[in-house]
Amino acid sequence: MKLYDYILSPSCYKVRLLASLIGAKLDLQSVDFHPGQEHKGDALLTLNPAGAIPILEDGAFVLTESSAMLAYLAATTAPEWEGRETPDMSAKVQQWLAFSHRLTASLGGARLVEMLHGNGDLDALQGAGIAALRELEAALFEQRLAGQSFLVGEQPTIADIACFPYVALAPDGSITLDPYPSIRLWMRAIRSLPGFIEMPGIHRLHDLVPDPQSSKEDH
């Protein structure tokens, strides 16, 4: 499988992250999104007329939306990440996949304005982003009450991966994550998963590895 990828794109990162978590192999093809605008060039427009990345190619099969790529990766490699054990879970996964597009539009839009000279009404984007974060916080709080760490149950699903990147990078668009304790714990749970990889703007959880200083003292 080949992913047309941009290191700073949270949507591309979703696909890289899930692939890493489930051990799926991806060939990465770097796209000069900025400053080169390669995604608006002829070659990539033939793959995705919308002029957007990521694009996933599996032989002749081409996908253009990150949520679809997550579903495809999970279905082909790790069905437990699909979250389809019950009708309720299936429906909730769909709900959060749809919700993730609101995060892209709001938090992602603010990030483009604040970081990469994008256009947009920053106040409106931030306002919509905060509304979405509050909804997510409330939902994750209810999950905690039910003893569940992730959006759709005790185990992570593609719903978590679809929502995580733009939330974690909200500060890039000058939207603070300080007021959301349940989001903080949820992000920590995702960042602690075996196989988790970072993207720029999301730092390593250094506390997950033992302190090299004390191990030196022990030996």
Binding site: H203, L205, H206, D207, P210, D211, S214
Partner: peptide
């Protein structure tokens, strides 16, 4: 607050 807790100490994320 962007740092990390290891054992009984708090580390700064910038230079540790």
């Amino acid at each position: 607050s962007h740092g990390f807790v290891r054992g009984e100490t708090l580390s700064c994320i910038y230079h540790g």
